[in-house]
């Protein structure tokens, strides 16, 4: 008399959702709220990481070489700079090249007329591996003999880094709390469904239904609540994010913030939402069922 019971689980499980319409609605809302907040934190973190890696790519340190050094001597300073572990690359720029660069950056090429390259210094453009250690690295570079001055803008990057670490801690905490809250609400919704059908369950046990069979519909109920909540939250997140990025880009005419397009991250986001919905739904109901089926 073996038969595939899956159809039965789905029918009965979904019946349960409608019997407790209000609780189911509350459970779905809880998951949506949880995932929206979770998703927003993830999106902000992703964008911040993106901005920071942009900064890492762009932010460079200028290392000015002592005037008294010849160009050949200046070049030997470069190998010392390169020996510092956090240095990704040190590119030598002679005073003549530096002047040409300055002239090239101006709309009016006559601005530097009459300026002699000797008023400038030879320099290195140094890019770093980890801009979080900028200050440390600058100190090390300053200690190299022949280095006259180091200029770095580590305030901005430090600001972003601090924000990133605060956000990481905050989002982990909030995600954990929200997951527990959703788990609790789902578990209670399913508990209500179980309680409502306790007589039926007692009869099922009496006539020899297996625990797996009794559990099936309630697991499906939790699963459905979780997945429906996740799907709604995903599309809501998509909409809200697109709206916000459009707004920011309208204001940010200088393209200071390079925001990730949702299309670039939709797949991992969808997978993440589905995974959270699934875990919260199935584990939430499993918790109630376990307590309920314990004889």
């Amino acid at each position: 008399m073996k038969r595939n019971n899956f159809g039965y689980y789905i029918r009965e499980g979904n019946k349960g959702i409608f019997v407790h319409g209000f609780m189911s609605f509350a459970a779905i809302c809880a998951i949506i709220a949880c995932l929206l907040i979770m998703g927003s934190f993830v999106l902000i973190t992703l964008n911040l990481n993106n901005i920071i890696s942009d900064l890492e790519r762009e932010s460079e340190i200028l290392v000015y070489i002592d005037d008294n050094l010849s160009e050949a001597e200046a070049k030997s300073v470069g190998s010392n700079i390169n020996m510092i572990t956090n240095v990704q690359q040190a590119v030598f720029v002679s005073r003549d090249e530096a002047l040409q660069d300055y002239i090239g950056q101006q709309d009016d090429p006559t601005l530097f007329d009459g300026v002699d390259a000797t008023t400038l210094r030879d320099r290195y453009r140094v890019t770093l591996l980890d801009i979080g250690q900028t200050k440390d690295t600058v100190t090390k570079i300053e200690a190299i003999s022949g280095v006259a001055k180091v200029s770095a803008h580590y305030e901005i990057s430090n600001g972003f880094m601090t924000m990133q670490s605060i956000l990481n801690v905050a989002s982990t905490a909030i995600i954990a709390i929200l997951m527990i809250v959703s788990l609790f609400i789902i578990s209670n919704t399913v508990k209500l469904a179980l309680y409502d059908r306790r007589e039926e369950i007692a009869i099922m046990r009496m006539v020899g239904a297996t625990n797996r069979f009794i559990r099936g519909p309630f697991l499906i109920e939790g699963f459905t609540l979780g997945i429906v909540g996740a799907a709604i939250a995903f599309f809501a997140e998509w909409g809200v994010y697109s709206l916000i990025t459009v707004r920011i880009q309208a204001v940010d005419t200088m393209k200071l913030l390079n925001l990730l397009p949702f299309m670039d991250i939709w797949a991992p986001m969808a997978a993440g939402f589905a995974a959270v919905g699934f875990v919260v739904g199935v584990i939430g109901s499993a918790l109630s069922i376990r307590k309920f089926l314990r004889v």
Partner: peptide, 10 residues
């Protein structure tokens, strides 16, 4: 019928 269904009868 319920008692048959829950033990997997067709």
């Amino acid at each position: 019928a319920f008692a048959m269904r829950v033990i997997g009868a067709s």
